[in-house]
Protein backbone atom coordinates (compact mmCIF):
# COMPACT_ATOMS: atom_id res chain seq x y z
CA UNK A 1 0.00 0.00 0.00
CA UNK A 2 2.73 2.40 1.00
CA UNK A 3 4.62 1.42 -2.14
CA UNK A 4 1.69 2.27 -4.36
CA UNK A 5 1.20 5.63 -2.66
CA UNK A 6 4.88 6.49 -2.96
CA UNK A 7 4.81 5.40 -6.59
CA UNK A 8 1.89 7.76 -7.24
CA UNK A 9 3.78 10.64 -5.70
CA UNK A 10 6.88 9.70 -7.67
CA UNK A 11 4.91 9.99 -10.89
CA UNK A 12 4.01 13.53 -9.86
CA UNK A 13 7.68 14.29 -9.29
CA UNK A 14 8.71 12.72 -12.59
CA UNK A 15 6.10 14.76 -14.47
CA UNK A 16 7.25 18.02 -12.95
CA UNK A 17 10.94 17.29 -13.52
CA UNK A 18 10.20 16.18 -17.10
CA UNK A 19 8.19 19.34 -17.83
CA UNK A 20 10.86 21.54 -16.32
CA UNK A 21 13.60 19.80 -18.33
CA UNK A 22 11.65 20.09 -21.57
CA UNK A 23 10.85 23.77 -21.06
CA UNK A 24 14.42 24.77 -20.16
CA UNK A 25 15.34 25.90 -23.73
CA UNK A 26 12.60 28.54 -23.83
CA UNK A 27 13.29 29.63 -20.26
CA UNK A 28 16.99 30.08 -21.13
CA UNK A 29 16.18 32.00 -24.30
CA UNK A 30 13.76 34.44 -22.68
CA UNK A 31 13.65 35.64 -19.11
CA UNK A 32 10.97 34.16 -16.86
CA UNK A 33 9.51 37.64 -16.49
CA UNK A 34 9.23 37.94 -20.24
CA UNK A 35 7.49 34.60 -20.50
CA UNK A 36 4.98 35.30 -17.75
CA UNK A 37 4.17 38.96 -18.14
CA UNK A 38 4.23 39.77 -21.85
CA UNK A 39 1.46 38.93 -24.21
CA UNK A 40 3.01 38.89 -27.68
CA UNK A 41 2.83 35.39 -29.10
CA UNK A 42 5.04 35.06 -32.18
CA UNK A 43 6.29 31.52 -32.51
CA UNK A 44 7.77 32.20 -35.97
CA UNK A 45 9.94 34.97 -34.47
CA UNK A 46 10.76 32.75 -31.56
CA UNK A 47 9.00 34.96 -29.03
CA UNK A 48 6.58 33.54 -26.52
CA UNK A 49 4.57 35.62 -24.06
CA UNK A 50 2.09 33.70 -21.95
CA UNK A 51 0.13 36.50 -20.31
CA UNK A 52 -2.85 36.10 -22.66
CA UNK A 53 -3.15 32.41 -21.87
CA UNK A 54 -2.69 32.83 -18.14
CA UNK A 55 -5.29 35.60 -17.96
CA UNK A 56 -7.69 33.66 -20.19
CA UNK A 57 -7.43 30.60 -17.96
CA UNK A 58 -8.00 32.66 -14.83
CA UNK A 59 -10.93 34.60 -16.26
CA UNK A 60 -12.78 31.62 -17.70
CA UNK A 61 -12.34 29.77 -14.42
CA UNK A 62 -13.44 32.79 -12.41
CA UNK A 63 -16.64 33.18 -14.41
CA UNK A 64 -17.35 29.46 -14.19
CA UNK A 65 -16.98 29.54 -10.40
CA UNK A 66 -19.05 32.71 -10.16
CA UNK A 67 -21.92 30.96 -11.93
CA UNK A 68 -21.47 27.48 -10.55
CA UNK A 69 -21.00 28.04 -6.80
CA UNK A 70 -24.28 29.82 -5.96
CA UNK A 71 -26.30 27.48 -8.17
CA UNK A 72 -24.70 24.35 -6.76
CA UNK A 73 -24.95 25.55 -3.18
CA UNK A 74 -28.66 26.28 -3.50
CA UNK A 75 -29.29 22.98 -5.30
CA UNK A 76 -27.38 21.08 -2.64
CA UNK A 77 -29.33 22.83 0.11
CA UNK A 78 -32.58 21.95 -1.59
CA UNK A 79 -31.65 18.34 -2.19
CA UNK A 80 -30.21 17.72 1.24
CA UNK A 81 -32.57 19.73 3.46
CA UNK A 82 -35.87 20.24 1.68
CA UNK A 83 -36.46 17.59 -0.97
CA UNK A 84 -38.54 14.55 -0.09
CA UNK A 85 -36.96 11.12 -0.29
CA UNK A 86 -38.77 10.50 -3.58
CA UNK A 87 -37.50 13.69 -5.17
CA UNK A 88 -33.99 12.88 -3.99
CA UNK A 89 -34.18 9.42 -5.49
CA UNK A 90 -35.35 10.89 -8.77
CA UNK A 91 -32.84 13.73 -9.00
CA UNK A 92 -29.65 12.26 -7.60
CA UNK A 93 -29.00 9.83 -10.49
CA UNK A 94 -29.53 12.75 -12.86
CA UNK A 95 -26.75 14.69 -11.18
CA UNK A 96 -24.44 11.69 -11.29
CA UNK A 97 -25.25 11.31 -14.95
CA UNK A 98 -24.39 14.94 -15.65
CA UNK A 99 -20.91 14.47 -14.26
CA UNK A 100 -20.49 11.40 -16.45
CA UNK A 101 -21.18 13.10 -19.78
CA UNK A 102 -18.00 13.43 -21.90
CA UNK A 103 -16.68 17.01 -22.06
CA UNK A 104 -16.80 17.03 -25.86
CA UNK A 105 -20.59 16.78 -25.71
CA UNK A 106 -20.71 19.83 -23.45
CA UNK A 107 -18.49 21.49 -26.03
CA UNK A 108 -20.86 20.70 -28.87
CA UNK A 109 -23.79 21.91 -26.83
CA UNK A 110 -21.89 25.10 -26.07
CA UNK A 111 -21.16 25.69 -29.74
CA UNK A 112 -24.74 25.02 -30.80
CA UNK A 113 -26.60 26.77 -27.99
CA UNK A 114 -24.51 29.00 -25.76
CA UNK A 115 -22.36 30.65 -28.44
CA UNK A 116 -25.29 31.71 -30.70
CA UNK A 117 -27.27 32.83 -27.66
CA UNK A 118 -24.45 35.10 -26.53
CA UNK A 119 -23.81 36.51 -29.98
CA UNK A 120 -27.49 37.06 -30.88
CA UNK A 121 -29.18 37.90 -27.61
CA UNK A 122 -26.81 38.78 -24.80
CA UNK A 123 -23.83 40.55 -26.31
CA UNK A 124 -25.80 43.14 -28.36
CA UNK A 125 -27.00 44.67 -25.09
CA UNK A 126 -23.42 45.35 -23.99
CA UNK A 127 -20.99 45.49 -26.91
CA UNK A 128 -21.10 46.32 -30.64
CA UNK A 129 -20.09 42.95 -31.86
CA UNK A 130 -19.28 39.51 -30.52
CA UNK A 131 -18.98 36.21 -32.33
CA UNK A 132 -20.23 34.49 -29.22
CA UNK A 133 -17.01 32.50 -28.95
CA UNK A 134 -15.90 34.18 -25.78
CA UNK A 135 -14.74 34.13 -22.19
CA UNK A 136 -18.37 34.06 -21.12
CA UNK A 137 -19.21 31.06 -23.33
CA UNK A 138 -16.23 29.20 -21.88
CA UNK A 139 -17.30 30.17 -18.37
CA UNK A 140 -20.90 29.05 -18.85
CA UNK A 141 -19.98 25.68 -20.38
CA UNK A 142 -17.38 25.11 -17.68
CA UNK A 143 -19.88 26.07 -14.98
CA UNK A 144 -22.39 23.53 -16.26
CA UNK A 145 -19.64 20.91 -16.20
CA UNK A 146 -18.51 21.53 -12.62
CA UNK A 147 -21.94 22.06 -11.07
CA UNK A 148 -22.69 18.33 -10.64
CA UNK A 149 -19.27 17.83 -9.03
CA UNK A 150 -19.82 20.64 -6.52
CA UNK A 151 -23.39 19.56 -5.76
CA UNK A 152 -22.48 15.97 -5.00
CA UNK A 153 -19.58 16.93 -2.73
CA UNK A 154 -21.61 19.53 -0.83
CA UNK A 155 -24.46 17.05 -0.31
CA UNK A 156 -21.96 14.68 1.29
CA UNK A 157 -20.64 17.51 3.45
CA UNK A 158 -24.16 18.42 4.62
CA UNK A 159 -24.91 14.79 5.38
CA UNK A 160 -21.90 14.72 7.69
CA UNK A 161 -23.30 17.55 9.84
CA UNK A 162 -24.87 15.89 12.89
CA UNK A 163 -28.65 16.03 13.00
CA UNK A 164 -28.41 17.12 16.66
CA UNK A 165 -26.84 20.39 15.58
CA UNK A 166 -29.84 21.19 13.40
CA UNK A 167 -32.17 20.21 16.23
CA UNK A 168 -30.39 22.50 18.66
CA UNK A 169 -31.07 25.39 16.37
CA UNK A 170 -34.68 24.36 15.67
CA UNK A 171 -35.38 23.84 19.35
CA UNK A 172 -34.67 27.47 20.23
CA UNK A 173 -37.31 28.41 17.67
CA UNK A 174 -35.20 28.98 14.57
CA UNK A 175 -36.83 28.32 11.22
CA UNK A 176 -35.37 25.80 8.86
CA UNK A 177 -33.87 28.50 6.68
CA UNK A 178 -32.29 30.26 9.68
CA UNK A 179 -30.87 26.92 10.76
CA UNK A 180 -29.39 26.35 7.33
CA UNK A 181 -27.93 29.83 7.09
CA UNK A 182 -26.51 30.10 10.57
CA UNK A 183 -25.61 26.57 11.60
CA UNK A 184 -25.47 24.21 8.64
CA UNK A 185 -23.48 26.52 6.37
CA UNK A 186 -21.16 27.58 9.16
CA UNK A 187 -20.43 24.04 10.18
CA UNK A 188 -19.89 22.89 6.61
CA UNK A 189 -17.84 25.90 5.53
CA UNK A 190 -14.56 23.94 5.29
CA UNK A 191 -16.25 21.20 3.29
CA UNK A 192 -17.96 23.65 0.97
CA UNK A 193 -14.65 25.44 0.40
CA UNK A 194 -12.97 22.12 -0.32
CA UNK A 195 -15.65 21.38 -2.92
CA UNK A 196 -15.07 24.75 -4.55
CA UNK A 197 -11.30 24.20 -4.55
CA UNK A 198 -11.70 20.85 -6.22
CA UNK A 199 -14.02 22.39 -8.79
CA UNK A 200 -11.57 25.19 -9.53
CA UNK A 201 -8.74 22.71 -10.01
CA UNK A 202 -10.92 20.77 -12.38
CA UNK A 203 -11.90 23.96 -14.20
CA UNK A 204 -8.30 25.06 -14.66
CA UNK A 205 -7.49 21.90 -16.52
CA UNK A 206 -10.66 21.41 -18.54
CA UNK A 207 -9.60 21.43 -22.16
CA UNK A 208 -11.82 20.28 -24.95
CA UNK A 209 -15.18 21.81 -24.01
CA UNK A 210 -13.62 25.20 -23.33
CA UNK A 211 -11.47 25.02 -26.44
CA UNK A 212 -14.58 24.56 -28.56
CA UNK A 213 -16.39 27.68 -27.35
CA UNK A 214 -13.83 30.28 -26.33
CA UNK A 215 -12.53 31.36 -29.74
CA UNK A 216 -8.82 30.64 -29.24
CA UNK A 217 -7.59 34.09 -30.15
CA UNK A 218 -4.17 35.17 -28.96
CA UNK A 219 -5.05 38.56 -27.61
CA UNK A 220 -5.91 39.53 -24.06
CA UNK A 221 -9.73 39.65 -23.85
CA UNK A 222 -11.04 43.12 -23.05
CA UNK A 223 -14.49 42.02 -21.99
CA UNK A 224 -16.24 38.74 -21.29
CA UNK A 225 -17.63 38.87 -24.82
CA UNK A 226 -14.15 38.72 -26.38
CA UNK A 227 -12.47 35.53 -27.49
CA UNK A 228 -9.77 34.09 -25.28
CA UNK A 229 -7.23 31.31 -25.25
CA UNK A 230 -6.73 29.27 -22.08
CA UNK A 231 -3.54 27.30 -21.45
CA UNK A 232 -4.95 23.78 -21.93
CA UNK A 233 -6.48 24.84 -25.27
CA UNK A 234 -3.11 26.20 -26.37
CA UNK A 235 -1.42 22.89 -25.69
CA UNK A 236 -4.14 20.78 -27.26
CA UNK A 237 -4.47 22.90 -30.40
CA UNK A 238 -0.80 23.07 -31.21
CA UNK A 239 0.68 19.84 -30.02
CA UNK A 240 0.64 18.19 -33.47
CA UNK A 241 2.49 20.94 -35.33
CA UNK A 242 5.00 21.91 -32.74
CA UNK A 243 7.99 20.29 -34.40
CA UNK A 244 8.15 22.76 -37.30
CA UNK A 245 9.36 25.76 -35.31
CA UNK A 246 12.39 26.06 -33.05
CA UNK A 247 11.58 26.20 -29.34
CA UNK A 248 7.86 25.73 -29.98
CA UNK A 249 7.83 22.39 -28.28
CA UNK A 250 9.67 23.86 -25.36
CA UNK A 251 7.16 26.72 -25.15
CA UNK A 252 4.23 24.32 -25.06
CA UNK A 253 5.96 22.30 -22.37
CA UNK A 254 6.36 25.53 -20.45
CA UNK A 255 2.62 26.09 -20.84
CA UNK A 256 2.02 22.66 -19.34
CA UNK A 257 4.44 23.42 -16.53
CA UNK A 258 2.63 26.68 -15.87
CA UNK A 259 -0.71 24.93 -15.62
CA UNK A 260 0.83 22.37 -13.34
CA UNK A 261 2.36 24.99 -11.06
CA UNK A 262 -0.82 27.11 -10.98
CA UNK A 263 -2.87 24.12 -9.87
CA UNK A 264 -0.34 23.01 -7.26
CA UNK A 265 0.08 26.51 -5.85
CA UNK A 266 -3.65 27.00 -5.82
CA UNK A 267 -4.25 23.72 -4.02
CA UNK A 268 -1.53 24.36 -1.48
CA UNK A 269 -2.77 27.88 -0.85
CA UNK A 270 -6.37 26.87 -0.37
CA UNK A 271 -5.34 23.98 1.87
CA UNK A 272 -3.63 26.53 4.13
CA UNK A 273 -6.68 28.78 4.19
CA UNK A 274 -8.88 25.80 4.90
CA UNK A 275 -6.72 24.70 7.82
CA UNK A 276 -6.72 28.21 9.17
CA UNK A 277 -10.52 28.42 9.06
CA UNK A 278 -10.97 25.02 10.65
CA UNK A 279 -8.53 25.90 13.43
CA UNK A 280 -9.85 29.39 13.97
CA UNK A 281 -13.46 28.40 14.37
CA UNK A 282 -12.90 24.88 15.67
CA UNK A 283 -15.31 23.47 13.13
Amino acid sequence: MLGITVFGLLVLLVISVGLLYKSMPVIKEQSLYDLLFTSSWKPSKDHFGFLTFILSTLRVTFIAILIAVPLSLLSAIYLSEYASERTKKMLSPGIDLLSGIPPVIYGVWGTLVVVPWISDHLAPHFVDFSTGYSVLAGGIVLAIMIIPLIISIIIEVFAAVPQELREVSLSVGATKWQTIKRVLLLKSLPGVLAAVILAISRAFGETIAVLMVCGNFTEIPKSVFDACYPLPALIANNYGEMMSLPNYESALMFAALLLFVIIILFNAGSRLILNHITQRYQL
Binding site: E167, L186, L283
Partner: peptide
Protein backbone atom coordinates in the same frame (compact mmCIF):
# COMPACT_ATOMS: atom_id res chain seq x y z
CA UNK B 1 -29.99 16.55 24.38
CA UNK B 2 -28.33 13.37 25.50
CA UNK B 3 -24.86 14.49 24.54
CA UNK B 4 -24.01 18.15 24.86
CA UNK B 5 -24.28 19.69 21.40
CA UNK B 6 -22.64 23.07 21.24
CA UNK B 7 -22.92 25.15 18.11
CA UNK B 8 -19.66 25.72 16.25
Amino acid sequence: AQRPTVLP
